[in-house]
């Protein structure tokens, strides 16, 4: 899903450079933060200019039974996709679906079924496909964004969780918590090409801006696996500490940094990807159990979704310090940023 966002950020960064060159300021686009609240079954929507909540959007009238979790954003930033599922993975219900939210109106504009307890989603760089990790059935599936037609479904590891599409659109990576693996799907030929081992209980995978690397967080392992995407092999493992419990990763579209939400230590780990070293750990004033994380397209702010304090923490990336806490819904799980264009 972040792949999607990263792709958009790359576009945005290029547009920014162009805009600056022409004297126009792309910064006048406005950004909105979306936080999926697992237990209140709603989405907290925050204006990143003011860091105020502008809306809480319900995705189900059955909080506690139905939950929104992972999210992804379209390449133009205008649509947020949310993985919605029943709490009970043993039961197949119509609640297993992917919901599309229009960023400008903050209304649900589309939804389609994705059976098997979708946990996280990713959008292809051309914006035509959504890929979902189907937790309950250990499968990964691709869907047509417009029609919801299932394009392919593939066996992946047990308890599929994280999913990302490479910036060149060739590969889909899907993590699996219980087998500690990543499965690589050839998106064009619609076939599995490889499974490989990463750290214990992998959660989220994200590609680097140039697509040459992928980063996989391992919650129990306390690590980030660095993957060479040309060979689909782990080339380095970044140790964050066994108590760190890393989950979501935000790739900075404007620099070589990645930001990792450390649920165990209520911290954000800042990693320089040129050295693969932790250059800062942000702990002070953080919310409790940051699980989701997102970064603004201009790279100036990082937001975490804090599951135990039901909050969003705002981090200034210059000082690498917390500047604000915002109340969210119950069980803040994931974070994603949409764009409302200036026009």
């Amino acid at each position: 899903m972040r792949t999607r966002r990263n792709a958009r950020y790359r576009v945005a960064a290029l547009a920014l450079a162009t805009a600056l060159a022409t004297g126009a300021a792309l910064a006048q686009d406005s950004y909105r933060l979306y936080v999926a609240n697992e237990y209140s079954a709603d989405i907290t929507i925050i204006d990143t200019a003011t860091d105020e909540v502008i809306k809480t959007l319900s995705v189900s009238g059955r909080p506690g039974e139905v939950r929104p979790r992972g999210m992804a954003v379209s390449p133009d930033g205008r649509t947020i996709y949310v993985a919605v599922s029943d709490f009970n993975p043993q039961i197949e219900t119509p609640e297993d679906k992917i919901v599309a939210i229009d960023v400008e109106t903050n209304e649900v504009i589309n939804e389609f079924r994705a059976g098997g307890n979708p946990e996280r989603v990713a959008v292809s760089p051309d914006g035509t496909q959504i890929w979902a990790a189907l937790e309950a059935i250990a499968q990964g599936a691709g869907y047509d964004v417009q029609t919801g037609e299932q394009l392919g479904i593939f066996r992946v590891g047990v308890e599929a969780e994280g999913v990302a599409v490479s910036p060149d659109g060739k590969w889909v990576y899907i993590t699996a918590e219980a087998t500690h693996t990543v499965t690589v799907i050839d998106r064009e030929n619609l076939q599995v090409v490889k499974h490989f081992l990463v750290g214990n209980r992998p959660r989220v995978v994200e590609f680097s801006n140039d697509g040459t690397r992928a980063y996989v967080s391992a919650e129990i392992g306390g690590t980030i696996s660095v993957v060479d995407t040309s060979t689909h092999t782990v080339i380095e493992t970044i140790n964050l500490g066994l108590d760190s419990r890393p989950v979501e990763i935000a790739v900075d579209p404007t620099s070589d940094r990645i930001y990792v939400a450390g649920g165990g230590t209520s911290a954000v780990y800042v990693i320089d990807t040129t050295t693969n070293e932790v250059i800062a750990t942000i702990r002070e004033q953080m919310g409790r159990r940051p699980w989701g994380i997102a970064i603004t397209p201009d790279g100036s702010k990082v937001y975490t979704a804090d599951g135990l304090s039901d909050s969003v923490t705002v981090i200034d990336t210059d000082c690498l310090c917390v500047v604000k806490r915002i109340e969210a819904g119950r069980g803040a799980h994931s974070a994603e940023i949409g764009v409302v264009p200036r026009d």
Partner: peptide
């Protein structure tokens, strides 16, 4: 063969914390 390299890397950070 496929796992050896990955395991070497994982082992290099394997828990010495506790």
């Amino acid at each position: 063969a496929a796992l050896a390299a990955a395991l070497f890397l994982l082992a290099s950070v394997a828990s010495a914390q506790y």
